[in-house]
Structures are given as structure tokens and as C-alpha cells.
Design a protein around this nucleic acid. Structure first.
Lengths: 244, 244
DNA sequence: CGACTTCTTGAGGAGACTCAAGGGTGGTGG
DNA sequence: CCACCACCCTTGAGTCTCCTCAAGAAGTCG
């Protein structure tokens, strides 16, 4: 394993030492590259296993019969992709590269070995899944109970928070390979409406989102608007299996 | 462990033998009872561990600052509650008993032991979490990309499917301890609107939902309306650790 | 300089919300 | 056994958010 970035995300949840990293390294398969717009896998494909995102951005989406596309999550380096499909005979979501992206492929069989021989790592993956579940719960709540502006504000803040997690140096201005169309699919509104919402926010001096450059102008104002619950990860639960 | 029902759910996902059941039995703690309306835990509480629902119904919800309540899931006997909160310092959702309910409490420490000494069971819990994630993904997609009638249809079909999983004898008429208010909170619409939707569906001879008795009148029609993706669980992935 | 993608703006309409009031139904106590 | 209460369901009217359709402007890339 090329050591660093791909474990940032796991390390954020529970501390990993050299030994843990070594185990992770052993199970990760070959590296692959995807071009912007290319699909890592599509809904209905037989599950290709997991991807550890090394560089670039990807997104996970589900498409409906009526043609509607819902973006579920935007992935950044260090994220692990494809977990939900493990429980099914066919991939549940489509993974698309939003920018050129590099991944390490992890075969399902390797996951089994993880559970047998690296209980601590297995438990950490389990916890990451719970974290993802909580994120989905919050998104679902926002979708059902708040209006478009609130949802957009929440999405921007969450993206920003995750960016900071990967790069604590990042300021209040950042670039994301997301178009307003993508943002609309993420927020569950139309492109036209998301555009109007963004212009209102620009006018209210909350955020400036143009092209793919985003500037947070009023973080507190955004937070008030977003109504996000505060969640604190338990980075090292007492019950985690000890290293061995 | 009082043997049967509480493992139905896990057994649905991967086959458990006597030995597996014995291990599960050992880690499950004392039994507790909650009256209808009582909370098993509330958002913000320090996580009380897991609950294995033995009998009765419960629901998981998230509340917003603005007072909005989103029901995330309705639980039936055999479901495992409280997993997402394991990754956080405070419970992420509120669990309420929709009817009188009995649970077994499982301490977080027991989960750690599971990962160390029962990798197969740990992997099954991991898979159950992925299944839950996929359900949330589908709900989120429905919420963002379909109208109220479609969402209500999807919810009814999913409830029915889960009922059948627990009780294959159940027909097209069933009772659920859910009010129309609860259904509204689940579907992300207001009580008034969900009522109008239900009446339209009654008129269209799709479903009859009155009081808490539900009759599916036209399953195919409902399915067409609901636009649910077909998902097939992988009940016994090849990579699952062997029993030992 | 085209051709494409992305963003912007306008007008009209539909789905869902709010506010408000009334009708059922089942349970409890006198 | 009836009266009352609490909870649940129903209906109406007016409003607003968000959608659809449609066209055009502004960037971006070869």
C-alpha cells in the first residue's frame, strides 16, 4: 500500500498503527485509474468488490425508472466505496468518477479474511458503516423536513467539513468537481431551482458558488440555515478489540 | 436466549446454526419491557448499547431544531436497534416503542467480543448494516425524486415485504401500530397531505388504510406506482468466515 | 472560431403546506 | 350504560415552494 492518504479516513475514526496499516496493505489489490465521467460500477452489475479511493472524487447514485437520479454521496480520497453492495447479489448504486480518480481494488474475499484475522480492522470498518448510516439518516431527515435552501446549506457545510478532515489547511474557499446539476441531484431539487437558491445565498452573502469554486462567506449564517445536528464521532470506543 | 424470533432477521441474511445461536445467546443481556409511547433512548443520550427487538414494534426518528420529526425506520421483531449510535458519543436517533415492546439489551463490550471470537457473526452484523444502508439509500432516493403518492406506496410495500419475511403466512391484510401521522413522518409529508393521498389510493383501489388496518388491493398497481428498485440479498456470500 | 457544457432568467402550473374546523372511535369513570 | 375525553381521521380554502418548459448567455476546450 502506498502508505498514507488512503487510510486517512479510517485513521480519522480509530487510530491505526503500523501493524494495522500493514494488514490493510496486504489485503488491498491492484491499483486502477478511472477517467472523469467513467463508471467504477453500475447499479445491477455483479458487485466488483470494494474500492479504496486514493485520489480524485467520485459519487454514488441511484437511478429510478422514471429517469430521476439521486446522488447519495460524494467521495473524497480516503473513502471506501462499494460496501453496501456487499450484502446484495447486484450492485445497489452506481459509482462515477467526478474527476480522474485512482483506486485500490479490494476483493470481497479479502473482507472475509479481515474478519477472521484482523478483528480490530473489521470493527473499524463496521463503525465506518455506522457513520455512513448516520449521514444518510441526516440527509433523509433534511430531505423530508427542510426546504431546498436548508438542504443546500447542509450539503455545502458537510462537504466543507469533510474537506477539512482530509486537509486541515483548506480555508473557506475551495474547489469541488461538482456542477450545479450535481448539486441539484444531491439536494433532490431541479437544476433550475438550485440555481435560484444559490443566487439567493450569494445575495444574502452566505456562500458564493460559481463554476466549481465555492466560497463560504458567512459560516454561522450557513449553520443556522442548515439546521444540522451536531454529531461527535467516538474515535476510539472502549470496546474495540485490542491490537494483536 | 429465548431461542427463536429474535434471530429471524439475522437468519434471513445468513444461515445460523446452533453454535452461532449459542454465541449470540451468550452475549445478549437482560430482557427489558417498554410501554407504548416510551422511549428506548433519545437523541443525545449517551449510547445505551444495542437492543434486539423480541416482540412489538418500535421506530427510529431524528428531530430537527425547527421541530420537524423524520421517522427513519419502523422496526419489527428480530431487528437490531441502535447500531448507528455505536460510532458516536451520543445517540444519533430516538427509539420509541410504537406498541408495548420487549427487547434484549446488548452491551457495546459484547460487540467487541463478537469481533474477536465470532468473526462469522460479526460479519453478518456488518452485512445487516449494509442492508440497512441500502434501504436508507432507496428511501433517500424516493424522497428526493418522487412525489408523495409514490413514497407512500413504496413504504407500504416495504412494510409488507418485511412482514412477510417474519411471517410468511401473513396475507394482503395486516395491522400495523402506525397512525397516519406516523406514516406522514415516515414519508416526509404532512398529516393532511398523507390523508388525501391515502384517500386517492383507496379510490383507485390500490390500498385501503384505515385506522391501523391495511389492505393491499392491487399489488401490481402499487408496485408500478412505487418505483422500487428490485434488490436481492446475498444470503450467504462466499467470503463469509466459516463457522468454527 | 465553433461546439459543448454549464449557468441564468422568465412565465405558468402543480404538488404540498398551513390554518382551521369538524367528525369518528374507543376507552374510562361515574 | 351513558357521558365525556383523548386520539385519530377528514375536509375546505388559500398560499407558497418547487417544477416544467423554454430560451438564451457565458464560459471552456479543441
Amino acid at each position: 500500500m502506498s502508505s498514507g492518504s488512503e487510510v486517512v479516513r479510517m485513521a480519522a475514526l480509530a487510530s491505526l498503527n503500523e501493524d494495522d496499516l500493514g494488514k490493510l496493505s496486504k489485503i488491498a489489490g491492484p491499483q486502477r485509474t478511472f477517467a472523469r465521467g467513467e463508471a467504477l460500477h453500475r447499479e445491477g452489475d455483479s458487485p466488483p468488490g470494494l474500492f479504496l479511493l486514493l485520489s480524485g472524487w467520485t459519487a454514488s447514485s441511484v437511478t429510478l425508472e422514471n429517469g430521476g437520479r439521486q446522488l447519495l454521496k460524494v467521495h473524497m480520497p480516503g473513502d471506501m466505496l462499494g460496501l453496501p453492495s456487499l450484502a446484495f447479489k447486484a450492485a445497489v448504486d452506481t459509482l462515477v468518477a467526478l474527476s480522474d480518480a485512482e483506486v485500490r481494488v479490494i476483493a470481497p474475499a479479502a473482507i472475509g479474511k479481515l474478519f477472521e484475522h484482523a478483528p480490530r480492522l473489521a470493527a473499524i470498518m463496521f463503525l465506518i458503516s455506522q457513520e455512513e448510516r448516520a449521514m444518510l439518516m441526516d440527509r433523509l431527515t433534511a430531505m423530508g423536513r427542510t426546504d431546498a435552501a436548508t438542504r443546500v446549506a447542509a450539503i455545502i457545510l458537510q462537504l466543507h467539513a469533510r474537506l477539512l478532515r482530509n486537509d486541515p489547511e483548506a480555508g473557506d474557499t475551495f474547489r469541488i468537481p461538482l456542477t450545479q446539476n450535481d448539486l441539484a441531484d444531491l439536494a433532490g431539487v431541479t437544476l433550475v431551482h438550485v440555481n435560484r437558491v444559490l443566487q439567493q445565498m450569494r445575495e444574502d452573502k452566505l456562500v458564493d458558488w460559481r463554476r466549481q469554486a465555492i466560497t463560504i462567506l458567512d459560516r454561522d449564517g450557513l449553520r443556522r440555515l442548515a439546521q444540522l445536528p451536531q454529531r461527535e464521532l467516538d474515535r476510539e470506543p472502549a470496546w474495540l478489540p485490542a491490537r494483536r
